[in-house]
Design a binder for these strands. Sequence first.
DNA 1: ATGCCGTGGAAACCACGA
Length: 260
Amino acid sequence: MKIATYNVNGVNGRLPVLIRWLTETQPDIVCLQELKAPDEKFPEQAIKEAGYHAIWHGQKSWNGVAILSKSSPISEVSRSLDGDDHDTQSRYLEAVIDGITIACLYLPNGNPAPGPKFEYKLRWFDRLTLHAASLYASGKPVILTGDFNVIPTELDVYKPERWVEDALFRPETRIAFKTLVDQGWTDAIRKIYPTKVIYTFFDYFRNAYGRNAGLRIDHFLLSPDISRHLTAAGVDHAVRGWEKTSDHAPVWIELSKTAH
DNA sequence: ATGCCGTGGAAACCACGA
């Protein structure tokens, strides 16, 4: 089974690209981020016609996450992280599909750093890490995926020296990511390609895609039960070159079978 | 070194993204 994550950067502005990508690649499960649409403007009908069930957690103008499933029903678990009752940003959606817990997340960007936005990012990260610990401890098959807005290592950015002060690459951010992964999660792309240069985001500016000046910030973190079924992982790099495309490329994993 | 582009929403500019 194939599971994908894709930061669409506007689900309605991106609809032709999204539908084409779904039709061509046929993932079984898809996590979307940056819908940039309120719940009532989610393109439910077009996605249904493409063959997918969907749940979504939208927000006017910003953020927004969704989970799509081709054949299996989606059982929603939650649409927020504990730890901040005043957080109104739609950045988290969790569901069970085929017995697998899927956490679809859009971690805050955090720039400019330092500052309140960076503090919000780190607090959000703490809440995610706390919740991830309980998911991990459950022993169930779990996938944490989405736009983490984290460049994990120097291998994951075209010019590390230019990013050291950036919220995506600052030491606090990398440490937070490492702390999360060290609970026992497997970074799927790095399990398959330990040292390969792989990017999932390319700026719209300066021909970043053409120059391969990218970042790897969209990730799959797998529980042990899922990790041992991992057979392949990759980035649909060419999608970033399509007309009217997102600045992110879709990322996917392939599992040998459902893990339970 | 840099929002230079792109999106959404409100209002013919602004906030925001990474």
